[in-house]
Design a protein around this nucleic acid. Structure first.
Lengths: 196, 196
DNA sequence: TATTGTTATACTCTATAACTATA
DNA sequence: TATAGTTATAGAGTATAACAATA
């Protein structure tokens, strides 16, 4: 069995300069995870599946979001968290995590990060001394205003590209989410092994 | 500034049993990253954004996919890779990576994993001795048949839940992906700092 | 006893950089 | 010099497990 270059390799002598992975200037090597259908390839079932179309769309939308927001470290998730805090000042940290589909520990890191940015602050929960409540700061609200404008522009540009069918799309997506959440997994060809 | 439990903590004496994070049985602590809208919360802009609806739908679909396929380690991505190899036997490893929006190195790990499962095999590229070509094995094709049936069932159950508007959705998603990929980032309220 | 937040840890995914062989 | 694959490593994201304080 022939192996390409696994003949002999040297350990990387120097312990690697540890370049910051920041978004300063793309190293020209790698062109942004595009996931667009390649012309010469056959995609088989993938072209029929709702799930794959959804994945493509989400990928493209994510990249577009990144390009639209001028703070590279504000991901869609962080943006959503900030919106939720601003809209529901004083919500418990755990509730925020739940709303975002995160484990408690992940929610904590998220709130930690927002606190470090100075965009939210924790305060005691008068009703439960175990809990924190989370509040937006003026800086956080200011930033949210700015980013929201950028996100809105991003979103409505896409909506415009869809013409008059655009509004349908959001409702269809909502219905799809409800269906996928509520539906029992379809018993496909072979029945599940056993209740175990 | 009061801090909840950060008074004094003990280092975890025992170096943690290192339990395998496998999917054997859910520990009953954590209920599957649901991301469904919570009743008491205000979602603000999020409810208007196409991007957030897309995220919700994708999250729900991902969970539904997991429940529908009886091999827990076959993710949507791995499934897609297997389809591409089966549909395009002999494609270069790097082309596969590109099609999946991955860096070369990531593509290699993906192919490594598929090889370990015995589902694909690498062979020399007669036209370029630097390259591998990737081919499906009989076992891979058999597995793909089975999983494809499950995925199709999963997908068409969702499609059915959307009624006659279902077919529209896939086309809208495709158009959305094209729009998001091709569109220049909208110049929002404040002009970008500078060409730098 | 159950729950909230916390912490340390580990796992997954994927990018980066350096390297080899080949073009 | 540029490209394909490989490797080691680093980083982001998030889950697990154990713990303290509180309910």
């Amino acid at each position: 069995m022939q192996q390409k270059n696994a003949s002999q390799r040297k350990p990387p002598a120097s312990p690697v300069p540890a370049r910051k992975a920041g978004r300063g200037a793309p190293p020209a090597d790698w062109a942004q995870a595009e996931l667009r259908p390649l012309p010469g390839l056959a995609y088989g079932v993938l072209d029929e599946l709702l799930g794959y179309a959804l994945r493509r769309a989400q990928n493209a939308l994510y990249l577009h979001f990144q390009r639209s927001v001028d703070r590279a470290d504000v991901s869609p998730q962080r943006f959503a968290a900030l919106v939720l805090v601003a809209q529901n000042p004083g919500l418990r940290q755990g509730l925020l995590a739940e709303a975002m589909g995160l484990h408690r520990s992940g929610g904590m890191r998220l709130v930690d990060w927002l606190c470090e940015q100075g965009w939210v602050a924790r305060a005691d929960d008068p009703q439960d001394r175990r809990s924190w409540t989370v509040h937006p700061t003026p800086e956080g609200l200011a930033l949210l205003d700015r980013v929201t404008a950028q996100v809105r522009a991003h979103d409505s540009a896409l909506l415009a590209a869809l013409g008059d069918e655009g509004p349908h799309l959001r409702r269809l997506l909502d219905r799809l989410a409800v269906a996928a959440t509520g539906l029992t997994p379809p018993s496909s060809t072979d029945p599940v092994p056993a209740p175990e």
